[in-house]
Design a protein around this nucleic acid. Structure first.
Lengths: 223, 223
DNA sequence: CAGACTACCAAACAAACGTTCGGTATGCAA
DNA sequence: TTGCATACCGAACGTTTGTTTGGTAGTCTG
């Protein structure tokens, strides 16, 4: 029988994915991509995993078994996971809220020129990860390097700090928050500001008046 | 009977929430907050809504009915929604990936000092919303205002531009991307750089060599 | 051609699900 | 003391779920 209105399977025409330069959802057939897309959209918009029958109805498929097969394929390809009878997204396919980075735009709105998209500006891209924290920049001791009062520095307390890195440290009795450039010498530690009006700080290693909070991995500013 | 090990309901001791200055989850009882917390955690980590029995087991509750009641309360308070028999998060309680902004920290890791958390650094906070796009900063014409080469400017093409705002514009025959400060005069438009080594640009209104891309609403930098 | 792969179907099953009901316990306010 | 709200229980009901089975069909490779 073939009196139904479904779109027939395109056979082996679909080898892999052409889009997605990121490479996360590589090697998915178009149909598998569509299934993933429905799931991602549902999770993003409503915060819940759609049921197999719901995915089927959105893709106008009459049988849950069809979607089930696609999901099994997505599982072996690492996009989905199962715990018991419950499906969940693999963390790597989670898309966080982001906006495109555009290059030069010939005409029209940059958002319609897909060819010009060079990447994605997202929380992940900025380094907004668990275990890190933000510090509001006070003072202008780093204004020489484009770090202004009111900016937010993103700090990773777990990162290893090398010479020349920007660090956040708590200084002195008041344990004031400061951003400086870190240098380690045989005689101790040097914290150098970018603004020459401020003094470079030098302390011995192990001085209790200096506590390192972590390495500055990002900066954000709002206008 | 009371031979069980469950923590007894604290009665009317709990009138509302003391934490959460944002005010989204206001007026939730501690238990309701815990239920919401479990749900949010599950949605964030795994991208699926937990079953009522799963929430119950995480909170060490023996009956799904208990969680069900809490969820009904969360629904009337606007945190959860239902479509048929399916539960979903209300969009306003969705937390996007973010890190805490800490102030001064007296001791220990800043991440354990909850009292010092002043806010949340998130994609939303930076303005990473739909309809906006990012542009990589080229050149040092705005270095006087802390905008350096390699930074990413977040641009809102829909925002109304006022005098003094930072804007992204496409200039000249090459339609080069530039960030400048915008001023409108009776005779036309002025685009002023922050670096005095660059010239201020002045064009008549309607000049085709100038196309405004939008207002700069945020900036991010990676180290 | 056969074999492999994608894509889809209908029907059925057991497990898990949301939900309802009736009940107990506790603390607070009227 | 009565009333009300929060907080929890166990048992049960009907629905929805993920899953399995067995099948058809198209398209590409060898």
């Amino acid at each position: 029988m073939s009196e139904q209105g479904w779109q027939q399977g395109p056979g082996r025409t679909n080898k892999a994915t052409r889009s997605d330069p990121g490479g996360i959802t590589e090697e998915l057939t178009p149909r598998q991509q569509e299934v993933l897309e429905v799931i991602l959209g549902c999770v993003e918009q409503e915060g819940r995993f759609p049921s197999i029958r719901e995915i089927a109805s959105r893709l106008r498929l009459a049988s849950p078994a069809t979607v089930f097969q696609h999901m099994e394929a997505l599982e072996t390809k690492g996009c989905l996971r199962r715990r018991g009878r419950r499906w969940m997204l693999d963390p790597k396919v989670r898309r966080d809220q982001g906006i495109p980075i555009v290059g030069r735009v010939a005409a029209g709105s940059p958002l319609t020129a897909v060819e010009q998209i060079e990447g994605q500006l997202s929380a992940d891209f900025l380094g907004l990860r668990k275990g890190r924290f933000g510090v509001r920049v006070v003072g202008d001791s780093m204004s020489g390097e484009g770090i202004l009062e009111g900016d937010y520095a993103i700090v990773d307390p777990a990162a290893t700090i090398s010479n020349g890195d920007l660090v956040v440290a708590y200084l002195g009795e008041e344990q004031e928050v400061t951003i400086k450039r870190f240098f380690k010498h045989p005689w101790g530690i040097e914290l150098r500001p970018a603004n020459p009006r401020y003094e470079t700080m030098r302390v011995c290693e192990g001085d209790p008046s200096l506590r390192m909070a972590g390495k500055v991995v990002g900066l954000m500013r709002r206008f």
